[in-house]
Amino acid sequence: MASIVPRRNRAGEIHSYQVRWKDGGTRSDRWQSERFDNEDSAKVFKDVVDEAGQHWPPGWVKGKGYIDPTAADELRYRFDRWAVESIENRTASKRYKQQCIRALEMYMIPTFGTCDIRSAEHFSKATIGAWVNKMLKTKVRRGSKIKDMSPETLRGLHGLLSSVLKEAVVAEPPLRDRNPCDLTRLPSNDDRDIGDDESSDDMEFMTPEEVAGLVGFPSPQRSDARADGVRERTAVG
């Protein structure tokens, strides 16, 4: 992974921050670096390098930043980044946020991780419906038992996905015309959200490897060659 190294002057004062990584991530690869005036910018760039598989981010020119704005958007509006940021920015308890992010990682990012939150092709009635059908076949572990995912749990997961897409609809300016989750029909059961103690305290999520074997619905393909390159380097599972 990339690292951040504070750069100091002769008086020992920090004057800049350097992000360093080996291009490709292996010991034999060459060191790369980029300098930033503040630590926050360095942290953002470090995360982007990690997500790009220890390569320069698409569209980034050393010392200048993003030359092609659309390349930056490919990362900014990718579902995995958008969804996690959406949860972290909510005014909710830390426990609730952790539980939501865990649900994203287990049940949504393996399917939608590299999809564009703005795309009507990536997020449509058809793709949401296909995901719901996969979830109905997914097993969850409760204590020592493994059972089919209950309609109650599915409603909670679907509600979480819907809330993330809704934020794209109400963004300023709007990123989507509508929320495709509004068109989904779900199995009937009592409505409880993911944060409901009664329905979630005894629930253990499956491992990413287990989920990857079950959630086989592929992310919709993009025609843009640059986006394909980003996906190959950063696809989940």
Rank of each mutant, 00 (worst) to 15 (best):
S41K: 15
S41I: 04
S41D: 15
A42E: 12
A42F: 11
K43N: 05
V44Y: 15
V44R: 15
K46W: 04
D47G: 07
V48F: 01
V48M: 09
V48D: 05
V49F: 05
V49K: 06
V49L: 06
D50Y: 05
E51K: 06
A52I: 00
G53Q: 04
G53V: 04
Q54F: 03
H55S: 05
H55G: 01
W56A: 09
W56V: 15
P57N: 04
P58F: 14
W60L: 00
V61Y: 00
V61I: 09
V61W: 00
K62S: 11
K62D: 12
K62R: 13
K64P: 00
Y66H: 06
I67K: 10
D68L: 09
P69V: 07
T70N: 07
T70A: 10
T70P: 00
A71Y: 07
A71R: 09
D73W: 06
R76G: 02
Y77Q: 05
R78E: 10
F79D: 03
D80V: 07
R81Q: 03
R81D: 01
A83D: 10
E85K: 15
S86I: 06
E88N: 13
T91F: 10
T91N: 11
S93C: 09
S93V: 08
K94G: 03
Y96M: 08
K97H: 05
K97I: 10
Q98E: 15
Q99G: 08
C100L: 07
I101C: 13
R102S: 15
R102T: 07
A103H: 11
L104D: 04
